[in-house]
Amino acid sequence: MAKFIKKRGKGSPGINTASLPDIVFMLLFFFMVVTKLRDAELKVRVVTPFGTELTKLEEKSLVNTIFVGRPVEKFQAIYGTKPRMQLGDKFAEPVEIPLFLERFRVKIPEAQRPKITTSLRVDGKVTMGIVQDIKTELRKANQLKINYSTKKRPDAL
């Protein structure tokens, strides 16, 4: 009996904080990675249309993205409201696509290059003219695997 009393008398040891740095670092790494993975700042407004026959894009490292849409409000003073294309993090013209693709291609091991997919994230309200120009450039640059980015339609047509 006396033994038990003795144990309680010592009081509880303080909470061990040795693992706190680990947890903090974990959170830090997590947020670092999450923010880094996010796409470049979108300078155009893109609301992709709906579809039902979707395929998922595997292997994000083999995907490059072209954005098309109207410039967001803060860029409208400079770039107007006509639909524009965004490559990487800046506005570009369709003629710049081959260079953009080549820059992406050299970073990929040669064996995987045929698997490179170009994802076209195009706003639904854009007309086909600019999309057609982009497609022509892609064909000229021999980048034939493309993916029209679409959202899953909540209900079937």
């Binding site: 790494f29 999450v34 993975l37 994802s119 034939l144 029209y148 980015s149 899953k152």
Partner: peptide, 21 residues
């Protein structure tokens, strides 16, 4: 675990093979 499982915006769409130029 979080690194591996976190997928941000799920990218899906209609995959198309363009004809050569």
């Amino acid at each position: 675990f979080f690194l591996v499982t976190t997928t941000l915006v799920e990218d899906s769409g209609i995959t198309v093979k363009l004809p050569p130029w």
